[in-house]
Structures are given as C-alpha cells and as structure tokens.
Design a protein around this nucleic acid. Sequence first.
DNA 1: GCCAGAGTATTTTTT
DNA 2: ATACTCTGGC
Length: 786
Amino acid sequence: MDFDNIDEPDHEFEEEYIRNPKVFDGLNPKQVEAVECLDGPLLIMAGAGSGKTRVLTCRIANLLAHGIAPWNILAITFTNKAANEMKTRAEKMIGEPAKSVWLSTFHSFCAKILRFEIEAVKGYSKNFSIYSTGDSKMVIRDCVRELELDEKRFSSTAVQSRISNAKNALLNAKAYKNAVLMSQVQSDYEWAVADIYELYEKRLLALNAMDFDDLLLVTVRLFENNEDILDQYQEKFRYILVDEYQDTNKVQYRLMKLLAAKYENVCVVGDADQSIYGWRGADLNNILSFEADYPGATVIKLEQNYRSTKLILEAANAVIQNNIYRKPKNLWTNNPEGEKITVFEAFTEYYEALKIADEIKELKSQGIPYSDIALLYRINAQSRSLEEAFMRAGIPYVIIGGLKFYDRLEIKNILAYLRLISNPQDNMSFKRIVNVPKRGIGTTTIIKLQDFAEKHEISIFEVISNSWLLNQIELTPRMKQNIRGFASFILDCIDQKNKLPVDEYIKYILENSGYMLELKTDQKPEDEARIENLGEFVNVAKEFANQNEDATLEDFLNHISLISDLDVINEDENLVSLMTVHSAKGLEFPVVFITGMEEGLFPHVRSLMDERQLEEERRACYVAITRAKRKLYITHAASRSTFGNSKKSDCSRFLTEIPMAYLDVYKQLIDKSRATPSFINVSRSQMPSAVKNIAKSNTARSKANALSLEAKIRMKAAKSKSKAEINMTKRWKQGDRIKHKKWGEGIVLDVYGLGTEREMKVKFLEEEVGIKTLQLKFAPIEKLKD
DNA sequence: GCCAGAGTATTTTTT
DNA sequence: ATACTCTGGC
C-alpha cells in the first residue's frame, strides 16, 4: 500500500492569505477563509474529513493572534474526546495561552458555570451532586414506587427517557404537565409520567442533585432569569465556537443563542450528513436555519476530504445519496484511489469475530500496528464476541466507551462516599454506601431512618449525625452504635476534606472506611479486579490533583461525573480500538472494520418502521465508512444470536447500496475439518466455478435489493406526481427559499411524509409568523431562486 | 440482616 | 446468555 502522501493537504492557496504562517500553514483557500473570518456569525459546513478540527484550532490561534484574550473565547464540543483533542492541538500550536481558553463539552461548561452561579437558583447549593443516568433511574424508580404505579409499565428506563426528552425540549415538570393537559390525546400514561416527573424534580432538589439534562436546563433558566449574570458571561465569552452543531438540541441551541446574543461572534461547525443524535433531541433545524437565525451570517463550505481514499469516499457518497431528506453536497478528494473494500460474510457472529482476528494478525504481519485499526459496531452488546475472539488470538485491544467508568460497582461506591461527604443531603449516595462495607445496617433500618427524615424534611445524614434526632427512632442500642460509628466516620472525613490532595484523600477513605479491608479479606473472585479498578481510580485522582493544584473535592467530582470512559486513549499503547459507531464520530483510523452489517442490526430493528430514523441509521453508516483512511472492511454474519437463540439475518441494505465494483467479497466455506474458518473470494473477477452459483445469487440479490429500493423511491415520486398539484411535482428540500401568498418569504426547515400527505415545515422571515407546517397539496407557495 | 437460588428483563446509539 | 431484582429460609 502506498499512502505516504495521504495526509498532505493542498498548497494551492493564494499568497495574500498568508499572514501568520503558523496559523495558516497548509490550509486550503476555503479553510483560510474560515480561519480569517473572526467577527460576526459564521457557519462552516464541514464534510467528513475536511480538516474541521484543524480549522477550529487555527481559528482560535488566529483570534489570539489578533489580540483577543484567551479567556474571552469559548469553544464547545460534544464529547470529552473531542474537547481533549482540540485542547492538545491548540496547546501545541499556541502554547501556554491556549490553556486559558474555555474549551469544554456542553455539560462540563454548564457544570462549571453552575458551581459559580448556583446561589442564584433557588433551592440548590454549590456542592450539588451530578447524577449519572443510572443514579437518576434509581431516583425515578423510587418515585414510581412512591406513587404506587406499576413498575413494569413505568420502567425507570422508559420514564427516564420521557423526562429526558422533556428536559431537552426545555420543559420542566410544570410545563410538561401543561403540555399533556393541552394535547389532544391525553393518555393516562402521559399523565402518570407527568406526575413522576413532578415528584422526581422535587426529589432531586431535596437531594441537592442534578441529572445530566438539568445541567443544561438549569443553566438556561439561570441566564433567562438573571440578566446581570447573563450579561457578565456575554461579556466574557465574546467569541464562541460550537463544534458538531448538527447535534445540538433545543436546550443547547437556546444556551448558545443567549450567550451569543450580544456580540454575535458565533462560529458553528457541522455536517448535516453526520447528524446521528436525533434520538436524544438533536434538531437538524438548528444548523439548517442558522442563516435565518443570524441574518448576514457568513457561510463557508469545506468539501475537500483529506482523510480517505477515493474509493472509500465514493462508497460513503453512494450510501448517503439514498437519503431523501438531504441537501446534496459534493465531497471530493485528491487522495489515491486506494484498495477495494473487503467484505466478509461469515456463518455466525462467532466466525465473523474469528475471521476479523485472523485478518488483523495478517495486517500486523504486514507491519500495520494494532493502534491503526478500529472495529466499529452498532450496539455495545456486539463487543462481546469480538472480545472473546481477540482474547483467544492474543490481540491487545481497548474498548472505548461502553463499559462506563462510573458504572462499575466499586467506582460507584467510592464516588458515593465522596458525594455524601461533599453533599450530605445526597440520600442516594448515603443509601448506597451506608452498608458498604457491611456494618450491619440493613434495609429495614434504612427505611426507618428515611421515613423519619422525610417526615421532618431533613436529610438522612442529618438524622444520624445528631444523637438527639437518632434517639427519636426506635432502634436497638446495638444498631444505634453501628449507625453512630458510620456517622462519625463521615463527619471525620468531612473534617479532613481538602486537607489532603484528592488521591491521598481517596486512599484515606478506602482504608478507614474498611471497604478496602473487606475487599481484601472476602475471597470473592471479582474482588481482585475491584481492587485494581480502585487503584486505577486513585491514579486518575492523582493525575487530576497534579494538573489542578488547588482543586477541591467538588472540582474533582465535577470532572469525574462528566467523564464517560477512561478517555485518555493511550496512544503509545499498541491496541486495537473497539467502539460503537456513535463514539467513533470525530475519529479516524487507517484501517476500519465495520461489523454486523445486517438488516435489523445496522440498520437497527427499532428504526425500520420510521423513514426518518432509517435515514439517521444511514447517516450513522456514513459516519462509520468515513472514519477509514486507507482500508475498509465490512463484515456480516448469516445468522446471529440474541438473547441466547440464533436468528438468520440478511446483509444490510447499506452494503447493497455500495456499487459491487468497489467491493471484494469473501464468503465463508463449509469446512468443518478446519479450526480456522476458510473464506473464498466471490467477486466476479476471480470467481472459481465451484462457487459461481453462490456468487451469482449473491449479486442477483444485491441487484434486486438495489432495484427494489430504487423502485420504491420512484414509486414515491410517481405517487406524488399523480396528485398533479404543481407543488407536488417540485422537489422541495431543506434550505429552499420559498414565498407564501399570505406569509411572505421563508426557509424550508423540513420536508416529510409521502404522496398527498407530504408536508413541510417552513420558517418565515416575518417574526410574528414564525414556523408553520404546510400541506404541499394546498399551500399557495412558490420556490425562489437562491 | 444475610445469602443463595429463582425469576426477570435486557440490546440502540451518549453527556 | 447474562445481569439484576426478589424471595424465603437461616
């Protein structure tokens, strides 16, 4: 393989653009334009691999070069990974001042603001706890129980997602209740959810805790209700950059809108084709209506891809073209053509994994390091079979995301200690560790304490740390002794707080609580790993303490609550990376395997019913393909087992959307005598006669699939045509400018529905008209030229 | 209060 | 297939 020049960008830019060679070095004209445009609203439409991060980093550098103070710049990303990446790159380029730029995720940005300003929000104090999804589910479960609702019907997962959606749409419990009241279909389910939400909201407040969504929601409320505070931050963040803007939801949109309102120096970067977070409220309209939002905004398109080979990029384009709700664009590359995409079709996921492991060993022997290779899958559960095969083959790997750091029991426990110490109101944390290690304080006792605390509207910890209160409760003297022992330990810890560096402090807690001792003495098989993980946790704390010298316990908790995995990808370690397609966003690898390319898995079953969701799946597939720089593998299994029983599965429609000419297809042969599965090439060029028939049927099937898909699209078009209205024959798409007889000019935000039911959402320029939904068969509209 | 064994939901994607 | 919750006996 000859890819040596693949990372080298064009040097065609004009001399006059070069002011600061450091800032503009190696950028193409479009990129330079983006880096140069510092003032006013700016939308950068950055295709996959078009050097987006680089442009953002250079733009920050350029702001600094123009004398803008680093603390006046706010850069928001979606994941910690992206934030870290940009931080490192900025520091490399700019040095020390880069450290003073506020560069963080939406969530940690809000957490930071709230630690400063929370006093302005009624009911919260600055040592509030941040609850992960798991924590908040527990609170919800308690609420459901208290309301005596059916726990099966109102599972914490289902309710939590409803509440989360509501919060992402800027609805608090009261607003949600109103929305249910106003809606035509008032299901009893929604009513109950509204009740749960109300109680949940109340509970969190009493616990002095926020869930992830609250961080954003409360910050928005804070700014909305306190003009002076908002003004202060508008002044502070005079320059704002938002990455992955296509993934912002309503709350995030509002937050940015508020912060940018004064100076409008807001630069957003995104790619509508890479929007894959619709399920958590991401609203494509945010990016599509940016120009309408900020009249006079500059728009720059970055369409040159520096990442992938021509063939990979073409394959990605071929797939994404099947999306109907999409603005066409032209992503191109100067990179070499590259190798064909290799496709493996195995019998089962077991063989699929085995074959991949085999191939990776082969790549390794060709001199490709493990760290150049990534395995992508649609759902986390797929990682298991892959892991097994890797372990057997002795291939070192790392799973990115997935098993979350704070989801491990021992980490949850030590975090609960820290949270209780920091925020004694936090009853959830209290309950988690009051009997870890075993202190003889069981559920019955805890319920007694909790009932008493609730009756007097105080926290459980307040009850047990006060002998007089404790004596009001009927308990055996022995039990009281146990409880007092626990209380005095926590009080002692509170006393010690911030006297030691966090890592030392954690060690102190682990030793003196007796938790470590219990893990060491109990001969449970999993304890060894738990001790190791706790050791790792101490290391993380140490790292944190070293980097943030006078950081408090709260700062540490803040940091740790918002980190999903042990983010720091050890780049020096030579490991194959395993991750979901979603967590691969923003990353790139020389060699990529996309696994489980099957109908029902990718696209996932739950998206098959809805066209919009299916298109989101296709975008996810587009993201997956465009992660690959040089070599792409796509694998699928003819049968896959879920919940223990195996089911036949067809190859993914997305795979059939890639022209056969780009593919090199291998099928598994029936050969039970071998330990390793054997595969045979069935691509037309070198087809052995023995398998010709298989290959034929395979090709025929692909063609049939492709045909039927095309036919479907044509049918849709025909259907709309048959209704003869002028509007229906036109191809309306997002971003079109239109004129309405009554409401004047507007921008199409969304077109959906089929045939005569086809509708579109339009944002009209006239302020009081706002956003309307129009039925295409009736609406008196005409298209305006761009 | 504790534990073992039965019973059950779980699998979309993340901060 | 596995991880979590619930139950009943000690």
